[in-house]
Structures are given as C-alpha cells and as structure tokens.
C-alpha cells in the first residue's frame, strides 16, 4: 500500500467548469492590468484616485492569486473558484469605475475610476 492511498483524492473539475473559470480569471487579469496602468498614471497627481486604484489592484491580485492557487490544489469546488474569478473580472471593475457616467466623453479618454 502506498502512503498516499489514505489521502483523499483531489476533486476533479469538469472541462466546462475549468474553461469558464479561466475565462473569468483572464478577464480579471486583463482588468487588473488596466487598473495597474490607471494606478501608474494617477500615482503622481490625484492621490485619492491613486489610492482607490491601488486598492482595486490589490483586491484583484488577491482574488486572482488565491483562486489560481486553489484551482491548482483543488482545495475548493470549481463553482466557488468561478465565483471568485467572476467577482474579480466582472463585479470589481463595475465597482471600480465609480459613478454612473463611466466615460464622460470619448475625446477625453477614460475617466480614471471616478
């Protein structure tokens, strides 16, 4: 008997579950990068906006890192990891672009998170 036989086998994730997890995860990573650029641009001028962008980037990094880690170790169900990634990729950008008018005028470019 091998020593590992007594350990619970890691959960198997479905192909669809894994696919959607990575779709959400990659969209979250892309938006994290976008807010990283916003942070870089706003770091010198508007301090409140820079702090906001920093918080968004940190929160997204935390969610994305932890969800990727748990996906790798299979410690949490794929449905929960999909929810984490969806939160990072959908909910957080929705929250992060403060206000009702996200971009006032295309000519002025993106209004950096408020």
């Amino acid at each position: 008997m091998m020593p590992d036989d007594n350990l619970p086998s890691p959960a198997k994730f479905s192909l669809a579950g894994s696919f959607f997890f990575w779709i959400f995860w990659l969209s979250g990573a892309a938006l994290c990068l976008l807010f990283g650029i916003f942070l870089f641009i706003t770091a010198t001028g508007a301090s409140v906006v820079a702090v906001w962008n920093l918080l968004i980037v940190l929160a997204q990094c935390l969610l994305l890192t932890k969800s990727a880690h748990y996906f790798h170790t299979r410690e949490k169900p794929v449905s929960e990891l999909m929810l984490w990634a969806a939160f990072a990729g959908i909910a957080m950008p929705l929250i992060a672009f403060g206000g009702c008018a996200v971009i006032n005028d295309m000519g002025n470019g993106v209004r950096f998170a408020g």
Binding site: A86, A91, L94, F97, C100, A101, V102, I103, N104, D105
Partner: peptide, 29 residues
C-alpha cells in the same frame, strides 16, 4: 455568477444606451 453577469450586462447596456439616446457619447452604468 448569473446575478453578477446580469447585473453587469444590464447596467452597462441600458446605462450606455440611455446616454447615447440623449445625444451624449460615452459609457455609463
């Protein structure tokens, strides 16, 4: 997840549509 997707899609789609119908350019929620 369904709620999040619906919320984000509905919010952005209708917010932006209203902005454009009112003759303003941009993106809205």
């Amino acid at each position: 997840i369904a709620l999040l997707l619906g919320l984000a899609a509905g919010s952005t789609l209708f917010g932006t549509l209203n902005l454009h119908l009112s003759g303003q350019h941009g993106l809205a929620k």
